[in-house]
Each structure stands twice: as C-alpha cells, then as structure tokens.
Simulated assay, not measured.
Amino acid sequence: MIRRPSRPVRVLASALVVGALLTTAACSDGGDSAGGGATPTDLGASPLVRASAATSTPAARLTQAGAEAALITMTDLEGGWTPVKGAEHWDDTLLVGKVDVAAFLTAKTNAADCQRLLDALYDDDLLGKPTGASALAGFQQGDSRLLYQVAAYNPVRLSAALGWLKTLPVKCDQFTATDAKGGKRTVQVTTASVPTQGDARQGLHVTVQGTTNGEPATLTLDVAAVRVGNDAITVTAGGLAGGAHDSLELAVREGAQRLKQVQAGKTPAPGPGRTR
C-alpha cells in the first residue's frame, strides 16, 4: 500500500513530541542513580527488540514423535475421508513414464525438470529426501486419495526445492510422456492456490491423461508444499475422480498449525474440523 506524504505540520509535531520524551527520559535518569534510568542495555532489551529476537530463535529439532504428532487425522478433514494403511506404497502407475525430450524444441533442459516432477510424484518426495524425522498419513474418499507428509529438511535444499516447484508451471506447462508399452500420456501443470501458512509455500495442479486397463483415464492431482522453519508439510490430493483442492486447503491450514505447535514443544490442539 502506498502511503500519502505526511503534512509538514504533522512532521513538526512528531519531532516536538519525540524531543519532549527524550528530555523527560534524561531528567528521569538523573533522578534515580540506583537504576531507574534507561541505560543502553535497557534499550537493547526493549519489548520490540525482545520480540524480534524471539521470532528469530530457531525451532527445536523435529523428532520422530513430533513428526507423527504433527500429522493430521481424519477428523481434521471434512467429508468422508478415512485413513488408509500403506499409503507410502500407492505409487499410481499413470505417473510412470519417460518424458519425450524431442518435444522440447527450444528448452530441452526443461525435460529433466518434468521427468523429475513425475518421478517425485510417484515416489512421494517432491521436496527431496528428508534429512531428519519424517511421517506420513494417507486417506481415501471413494476414488480419491490424500497423502499428507511431515518431515525435516536441510534448509538450503528445502528453499531450493520450493523454488524449483515454482518454475514448473512454465517449464512443464504441457508435455508428453511414454509408458513402458509405448502408450502416450499428456501431462499438464499449472499453479494452484495454497493457504497463507508457514514461511513459504507453493501449489501445483497436475493432470495426466492416458489409459488404465485399456480405457481412457485422467489422473488429477492437487499438490501443496509449505515450509515451516526447517520443516515442511506436503499434501497430494486427487485421483481418477478429479482433484480435491478444498480438502487440500483444509489439510494445509490444519497441518501447518499442528506443526507450529509441535515445534513450540506443545501438544497440537484440536482444530475447527476436529472432534474433541
């Protein structure tokens, strides 16, 4: 927001007030030599400075128990989502394919990024391999799935991974991948909105058009990654029935708050979508 220039009379008035306050403070300092005045040390410990220092204090290292506590549960999600075991082995085969490098006429290096995206979606490691504790939870609603992950990362690599995700809607807006049998798949990648949570975030909307069991099929995935300190949450939601953006947004809002509470050494409190 652009601020209007202050009027001269207000600037003068502010200067007079500041001058008066400084004069008063100097007089008070001389009246109590035992410690009533504001010394340089006192000024350094002002509420503003203390608050700034508090916000820059690094969070405690995420433990395995903390990562598991930060996971959302089915009561954090609206609708008929139910927990599913073995979500780490979902591995949707529509995501398996070799990117057609020849189709990238002017920027063939982008093909490597598109291949990396497909592989990362299949392996559930969009942000790379965690460097610390990690946990995941899976949920299913009809033909739709939602995978939620919490993990600790190297801060430099984490920031780089989020920056990489941001480039994909341009580098990989549409490309072709070929499966092991020679079948062609058309992949489209666009930017998706993500709730304003954490320190940084990026969302993607990915569709893969191909065939399943000889029948035409379209896999639709809504993806979100949110950095909270040196930790992050990733959410992938959707399936052959379409995307699940509303559920993804709810998972991000609830999950980011849970992770913040864990980082602060607290037990995550029930959110608005949770039962007590």
Rank of each mutant, 00 (worst) to 15 (best):
210 G>R: 10
223 V>Y: 07
127 L>S: 00
260 K>P: 10
224 A>T: 13
221 L>M: 03
276 R>H: 07
83 P>Y: 09
272 P>E: 01
160 A>K: 04
272 P>R: 01
55 T>G: 05
84 V>D: 01
182 G>N: 01
10 R>V: 15
180 A>Q: 13
152 A>H: 01
245 H>Y: 04
17 V>H: 11
61 R>W: 04
51 A>S: 11
100 D>G: 06
64 Q>W: 06
240 L>F: 10
229 G>R: 08
70 A>Q: 09
276 R>S: 13
69 A>F: 06
27 C>Y: 12
147 L>Y: 10
261 Q>Y: 05
272 P>M: 05
190 T>A: 07
1 M>V: 13
97 G>P: 13
99 V>N: 10
201 R>Q: 14
246 D>T: 15
23 T>C: 15
124 D>W: 05
102 A>R: 09
233 I>R: 02
9 V>S: 15
48 L>T: 15
216 P>V: 10
115 Q>A: 10
61 R>H: 10
196 T>Q: 09
15 A>F: 10
184 K>A: 15
19 G>S: 13
178 T>L: 07
113 D>H: 11
17 V>Q: 11
123 D>G: 11
118 L>Q: 10
181 K>N: 14
192 A>Y: 01
145 R>M: 13
176 T>I: 15
237 A>W: 12
246 D>I: 12
2 I>F: 08
48 L>M: 12
84 V>F: 02
168 L>D: 01
38 A>Q: 05
18 V>A: 15
4 R>V: 12
217 A>K: 08
140 Q>V: 14
52 S>K: 08
151 A>W: 01
185 R>V: 03
264 A>Q: 12
185 R>C: 03
273 G>I: 06
